[in-house]
Write a protein that binds this DNA or RNA. Sequence first.
DNA 1: TTGACCATGTAATTAGTTACATGATTAC
DNA 2: GTAATCATGTAACTAATTACATGGTCAA
Lengths: 188, 188
Amino acid sequence: MNILSYGLLGLLTREESSGYDLMLKIQPHWQAKHSQIYPLLSKMENDELLASRWVQQSDKPDKKMYAVTEKGIEKLLGWMTTPVTAPVTRDEFNLRILCVGIAEDGSMRRILNERKNWFMERIRYFEDLKSRIPQDHLRVGSREFGSYILVQKGLMNAQTGIEWCNWVTQLLDGQAAIQDPCPSISEK
Amino acid sequence: MNILSYGLLGLLTREESSGYDLMLKIQPHWQAKHSQIYPLLSKMENDELLASRWVQQSDKPDKKMYAVTEKGIEKLLGWMTTPVTAPVTRDEFNLRILCVGIAEDGSMRRILNERKNWFMERIRYFEDLKSRIPQDHLRVGSREFGSYILVQKGLMNAQTGIEWCNWVTQLLDGQAAIQDPCPSISEK
DNA sequence: TTGACCATGTAATTAGTTACATGATTAC
DNA sequence: GTAATCATGTAACTAATTACATGGTCAA
């Protein structure tokens, strides 16, 4: 049982879903390909944490719907009381920045712009996710409350990323002093 | 050649370092254990991207110092012109939040507090890193400029994380309306 | 004396990605 | 017709973690 397994288990307590559904639902919060998810679901079914049934569809391919078992819920509740592990971020961008000094002069600006665009794309992505959450689920304690606050987290992080990009650009342009703290820091 | 390899290569263009040194230097920007770094360095030396020599120390164990070769620099420059891949973050916290509804009432506040403390610890960590960068290296184009802006990035992200935790806490306390945008978003 | 730091490595395992494989429907 | 979406799986590989293994110095 790795972390992803618990995430899938958690999503399945909300509603019965296919592996494909789960892949789409977990994407915003944990990147995983279908090739990792399908075997994991099989394994969990084998361990009797999940139960499955095939559902025929007329227009689309048949799908295998999974649901959590009593044993699965117990497992999930057990996980909920364990300490949360620290996040792991791996960003090639950081390593690029670290050795940008050895490349030609424009490369810093190039990757900075690339990253800023990526953050803007992220904002569009999260805004879209947010718009898909039904209004009546935006209450504390409602089923989608978790999704809502996580989307907001994603938006805030992307916003901060853009602010950082702007700050570095200003430094490169000589429009800001190097010791100047970043906007977000100075506000606190 | 994975991303980490290029990061190590990049650090080595700054100065000759041991595997142990590299492990410490890369930590803030890319988490990797010594057990991954040592074999990678061996492999890169085998590919003639690096050269090594043993240095005896009286008080501490002997160390193997690595330096980039001409071939290594070429490899690094080639990498610098390739498109930067998107960052990957895996955070158990997100999956917890997603299924916090099925646990007892206090669990949301518990993990929220846990995470806020982690962010505060992060700020101390990055402030410490920042204080170790010599003042005369805080210029655009200086050797440590990349480290400096990355540390600032880490500080900004942690700050945003704390703001998000506070926002969610207010929601739980009923002190903020659910549709209220987060502080950082509203400013833009 | 116990734990942290220095220093290097290998072995075993898990987690995650890429590629292989198939096939229907729908929208441009 | 060509790409995207739906839908499920396996095989091969790479990346990363955990565990095994050793051993000296220094500080609380």
